[in-house]
Simulated assay, not measured.
Amino acid sequence: MRILEELKQVAEQVENEQVNLFIEALKQAECIFVCGEGRSGLMGKAFAMRLMHAGYPVYVTGETITPSIQEDDLLVAISGSGNTPSVALVAEQAAKSKANVHLVTTNRESKIQKIADHQVIIPAATKHRRKGEPATIQPMGNQFDQSVHLLLDAVVISMTGDDKDIHDLMKRNHANLQ
């Protein structure tokens, strides 16, 4: 299937060192905050949910129960272009609060990158189809969104390591008021 081959090619180009630094920052954060718009925001919410299942203190920006971000906290900003105005505003606010800002993006030289302490580059196609983005049979930013989802799930799995009880912990933390 062509889509799976495209995702494999993108994943093979992600720099392991960037991901390892991201994982260490997540582990060290007092609280983790996640932001993104549109489908990037949905991928961020899925990531936040998995982090919560794994026992990490995590919030999604813009929700009514989200507290203020503090100095030892980490903001994960997800933006394919790295220039999404609302995400840039949140990143600026987090940086002013002296929180650590990590960007997940396709764009090495973006507005948010200039604010971020670290970035993870996912070399996937976005809806903008900028020069240098890979060819894809998929519309819009599907390739980026899917790649983000897979990468961030892999990050959570890596963060839980060889913990044999992680499935049980995640199951206990799963919503039960449904």
Results as ranks from 00 to 15, higher is better:
78 I>M: 07
95 A>M: 13
178 Q>I: 12
38 G>V: 06
116 A>E: 08
9 Q>K: 14
59 Y>W: 14
20 N>H: 09
130 R>E: 12
72 D>T: 12
35 C>R: 01
51 L>E: 05
49 M>Q: 10
119 Q>A: 14
161 G>C: 04
132 G>Q: 07
70 Q>T: 10
177 L>M: 14
45 K>T: 12
123 P>C: 04
138 Q>G: 06
177 L>N: 14
101 V>M: 06
41 G>S: 07
87 V>E: 00
48 A>S: 12
29 A>Y: 04
104 V>M: 09
151 L>K: 03
20 N>V: 10
42 L>V: 11
90 V>F: 02
18 Q>C: 00
119 Q>H: 14
77 A>T: 10
61 T>W: 04
37 E>D: 11
40 S>R: 10
90 V>K: 02
142 N>C: 14
45 K>A: 09
66 T>S: 05
5 E>H: 11
18 Q>F: 00
101 V>D: 03
57 P>L: 11
61 T>V: 15
102 H>A: 11
41 G>N: 05
62 G>P: 08
45 K>C: 07
161 G>I: 03
46 A>H: 07
100 N>Y: 10
98 K>V: 02
13 Q>P: 01
138 Q>D: 08
150 L>F: 07
38 G>K: 05
176 N>R: 14
154 A>P: 02
79 S>Q: 08
135 A>T: 10
153 D>H: 09
120 V>E: 00
10 V>D: 00
178 Q>P: 03
101 V>K: 04
2 R>S: 13
163 D>V: 05
8 K>P: 00
56 Y>R: 12
59 Y>I: 01
150 L>S: 02
169 L>G: 06
18 Q>H: 01
178 Q>V: 11
178 Q>H: 12
45 K>G: 09
28 Q>F: 08
48 A>P: 05
51 L>F: 08
132 G>W: 08
87 V>S: 00
19 V>P: 04
162 D>P: 03
59 Y>R: 00
152 L>E: 03
38 G>H: 06
64 T>W: 02
174 H>L: 13
130 R>P: 07
85 P>Y: 02
140 M>L: 15
60 V>Y: 03
38 G>Y: 05
120 V>L: 07
139 P>Q: 05
